[in-house]
Design a protein around this nucleic acid. Structure first.
Lengths: 118, 118
DNA sequence: AATACGATTAAACAATTATTTAAATATTTA
DNA sequence: TAAATATTTAAATAATTGTTTAATCGTATT
């Protein structure tokens, strides 16, 4: 495959296309990013990276209703970013202990410190 | 402020709330994540992290129409993730040279290499 | 078993967003 | 200046998504 315009030498363009992330990689990365692309979920995720909490407390900390929190928790859980455990009447959520989560948490903290780009 | 349930000691809860990212930080981080939460934009962004390209070539590489690419480019540009320059009839786009962009690029490459979480 | 509490689900609504096709704009070249 | 090329904008449509309110489900307690 060749691009309509040839701004780079063939070797280079070929290399780019070959090292391009696979569809699966793109899907999984964008799926994770998408979940954190919502401010409510980002807040919840951040909290759960630091502590394990029940739904009511998360709702209080983020000033949201329980159903709204529950909805976001489900999405985060489906994406594999958080996990849950039941203790009596309560469900406790916390960030999953995976490389993906650790990297996302790290980049969030780093970006949050920047605030102004550059 | 105290959470409805007290699963942690007061000192700890207080500390969490205080270190919680500000609204501005949350907004800016989630805005960046949101842009990369779309697979089409993630692909485009990845390409532009590696090379400068014109719209037609990006469209060819991603198998999208020019208007669709143009639309995503505008969003990425508004978010400060990419920049543009005109050369004759063509517009050339590339990733912005900022800390934010470098960190996002890095985490994308890292996550893409993982594929399977954990 | 009845009640209370925590959490989830469902339905409805509002809002945002991606894609397509067609038209418009900008720049170069004949 | 007319035609060709590259890109953007606009209009229309389809699809996704977040939030709210009300109802339901699961667990524990009395």
């Amino acid at each position: 495959m060749t691009t309509p315009h040839n701004h780079h030498d063939e070797e280079f363009s070929k290399n780019i296309l070959e090292t391009m992330p696979s569809d699966e990689a793109v899907t999984s990365v964008s799926e994770a990013m998408k979940q954190l692309g919502d401010p409510s979920r980002l807040r919840i995720f951040w909290i759960l990276c630091h502590t394990e909490e029940c739904v009511i407390d998360i709702a209080a900390m983020t000033e949201m209703t329980s159903p709204a929190v529950s909805h976001h928790l489900r999405l985060l859980k489906t994406a594999g970013l958080i996990e849950a455990r039941r203790a009596g009447k309560e469900m406790y959520y916390k960030a999953s202990d995976t490389r993906l989560v650790r990297k996302l948490h790290k980049v969030i903290e780093e970006i949050a410190d920047i605030t102004c780009p550059d």
